[in-house]
Write a protein that binds this DNA or RNA. Structure first.
Lengths: 240, 240
DNA sequence: CTCTTTTTGGTAACATGTTCTAAATTTCAC
DNA sequence: GTGAAATTTAGAACATGTTACCAAAAAGAG
């Protein structure tokens, strides 16, 4: 049983006057923390390159350390485990949020589906890379899964459902937290099956959409139900 | 990349006149296959004991071989991998089918829920054991997941949905294969979250039932929908 | 600048899943 | 029964994730 380290400490940067791109945490530490952040970035970059070049199997800690030009111990000091490195890569959602905010629709239910499509397009834009990541997520041992699974890792997706509830799109008495949970189940299961090769890329989006539509059709108010029944039929015809 | 062996060869027994309990495959091989089957059973039994005594972490291949009184290579010859052993344990559904056939209701939708309840009661009857198994299932590397995930491993559950479709319980145009797939997603996700500790035992059954009810409420004919909406409310109140 | 604390480098070590080899054993076919 | 084929055994070996240890280097405080 591995010792639980304080992995994933927040990134920090130097206190010198620099311009930080959006999304960077505020610079709190001194040069020491800056060096750590730099090394963390180097390691992540090396991991991306290794996955791209050699595929899933090439991402061993020794190869990663060599590629990043650090010692084997350093990734463990900075991340705690190999899984934490993979999770850090998967949680780098900057690109997703850029894509999503560029097309964010107003209807809350549409927004849920659009977010789903956006994420899947992102993944399918670099299959070997994201396939490796999703596979590694489910290979994670105990104690680390909570960081990407569970409510914390899915906060964004739960928020979308909350917005739909606030807009009165959900049937009375239906708890949006639960709906969000099942949408997460669907999304994760679909990603997992795609990652291990049970679902081909062409069917991934429709598979996830159909699951979403089924769940939402069971939860939505009657006036919106027709739309979702249509979405079910739509997704099914894509899969036929 | 591990070599794919012909793991999980069917069990066989001697050709002598014995009385076989139901569920045993017909005796095709000779003494050789009988010995293999015997050894397989010994290994599975040793694995059960090891999990019960030492928990998840105690199930190492070396410990297992020692406990079963065989060499380290033998489990690999007979099963192919550690995962295959775990999967074999989880797929030993004799007990489940006994429990389920004792209470099989006539309504096809009821049958789906009853099967779910039965499986969960079985798992919750021996949490440390089944928790270990379910955890190990998702720790499985590539190439073996197909044996327990995917349509093959879930044939029984898909059959229940097919029965419901044959009985006219599903809305026209809804493909029962897809419904079955999403019910599998829900069930597996719920079991997984329970296995890793994200869902407590008291909430497992209601969590799975609510997901089932939501999916089915989106797929069922209008005359049955009221029942499932009620099931949603029911399960939600259990979780409140 | 000097001293202290933190972190890395480098390396060995450990546990584990898995494969491999050769010898011994068992089963099968005749 | 006898020879051929399959299987087990014992042990070594390999790759990997992970931890431990210590010396060197870097950063911070004064």
């Amino acid at each position: 049983m591995p010792i639980k380290r304080s992995a994933l400490a927040r990134e920090t940067t130097t206190s010198e006057a620099e311009t930080f791109p959006q999304g960077e945490p505020l610079p709190v530490g001194g040069r020491r923390e800056a060096g750590k952040a730099e090394r963390r970035r180097t390691i992540i970059k090396a991991a991306r390159e290794l996955i791209r070049e050699t595929g899933n199997a090439g991402l061993s800690m020794r190869a990663l350390a060599a590629r990043a030009g650090v010692s084997l111990a350093t990734p463990y000091n900075l991340f705690g485990s190999k899984r934490a490195i993979v999770v850090a890569m998967l949680q780098d959602v900057r690109e997703f949020h850029e894509l999503f905010s560029a097309r964010r629709p107003t209807d809350p239910i549409d927004r849920i589906f659009t977010a789903l499509d956006t994420a899947i397009e992102l993944y399918l834009g670099d299959p070997p890379f994201y396939r490796t990541l999703w596979t590694a997520v489910f290979d994670a041992g105990e104690g680390v899964r909570e960081e990407i699974l569970g409510p914390k890792g899915d906060a964004f997706w739960r928020g979308l459902v909350d917005e739909a509830a606030a807009a009165g799109a959900l049937r009375e008495g239906v708890n949006p937290n639960f709906i969000g949970q099942y949408l997460d189940f669907i999304r994760r299961s679909a990603m997992f099956e795609w990652a291990v090769g049970l679902i081909p890329a062409e069917r991934l989006a429709a598979t996830a959409r159909l699951g979403y539509a089924l769940i939402l059709a069971g939860a939505v108010t009657d006036d919106r139900r027709a739309n979702l029944v249509a979405a079910v039929a739509d997704a099914q015809s894509c899969l036929a």
